[in-house]
């Protein structure tokens, strides 16, 4: 699949060195890069260039990154990858709740950055409506609601399948516990993380090559889960 034009990205960070390094890494991948150093500039830039994705640092000098996110979300559904310096989960969860698609904790590697970016950009791309999702030797047929492992069908309970489907639809991206519980079991199930843990253990036992050290159904420390395709 060839793109008609390169994806336009807006990088929002007050540190010029970070902007420079991100630009280097992203332009090498043929992205078109725009920069903004403050929250106000970011909002006007976003309105001006209509980027396909935003990389947003949460610690900005003028506006709180979360506030930028909130104002952006008032009129735009552009995918947003948030950069944080702290590994406090509250900040990450708050950013995800405010509409961020994923986060990356500084310091991060180029490989991580590109993988996350690809995953969040996929959300608005039509090709994301794939019917078959594959990871490891597992194949999920979303249309037929069938999961195969090494060609043989795997029996999943309804709850296990729902969980897997939700992760597959958001593959490569983090989903928080609350998102899963809200989407799959309704608003008043948000305290049922205990069950979620148990379902995830079952899924891993059925699908992971080594359930004790899961490679594909990954845990995001204190935040949620992420299905990684490779």
């Amino acid at each position: 699949m060839t793109k008609s034009h390169p994806s336009r990205l807006l990088i929002v960070d007050d540190e010029v060195q970070i902007r420079r390094l991100l630009r280097l890494a992203l332009e090498e991948e043929n992205y078109e890069v725009h920069e903004a150093a403050t929250g106000q500039l970011a909002l006007s830039e976003a309105a001006g260039v209509h980027p396909d994705g935003v990389v947003l640092d949460l610690g900005l000098p003028d506006l709180n990154g979360r506030e930028v996110l909130r104002r952006l979300r008032e009129w735009s559904q552009v995918p947003v990858l948030v950069l944080t310096v702290r590994d406090g989960e509250e900040d990450k969860i708050a950013a995800l709740d405010a509409g961020a698609d994923d986060y990356l904790t500084k310091p991060f590697s180029r490989r991580e950055l590109l993988a996350r970016l690809r995953a969040v950009l996929r959300r608005t791309q039509p090709s994301s409506e794939e019917i078959i999702v594959r990871f490891s030797d597992v194949e999920i047929d979303l249309a037929a609601r069938i999961v195969r492992r090494a060609g043989a069908e795997v029996k999943l309970t309804a709850r296990e399948y729902d969980l897997l489907r939700y992760l597959a639809q958001h593959r490569g991206r983090v989903v928080t516990h609350q998102q899963i519980l809200r989407e799959l079991w309704g608003a008043n199930a948000e305290d049922s993380t205990h069950y979620l843990r148990v379902y995830m253990t079952h899924l891993r036992q059925k699908l992971e090559p080594d359930p004790r050290a899961p490679k594909f159904l990954q845990t995001e420390s204190g935040v949620g889960y992420r299905l990684v395709e490779s």
């Binding site: 989960e89 509250e90 516990h177 993380t193 205990h194 979620l196 843990r197 995830m200 253990t201 004790r212 050290a213 899961p214 845990t219 420390s221 204190g222």
Partner: peptide, 14 residues
């Protein structure tokens, strides 16, 4: 602390 149900194996792996 934000206490929640965790998989001990997950914590160990992380």
């Amino acid at each position: 602390p934000r206490l929640d149900w965790c998989d001990a194996g997950d914590i160990v792996n992380a």
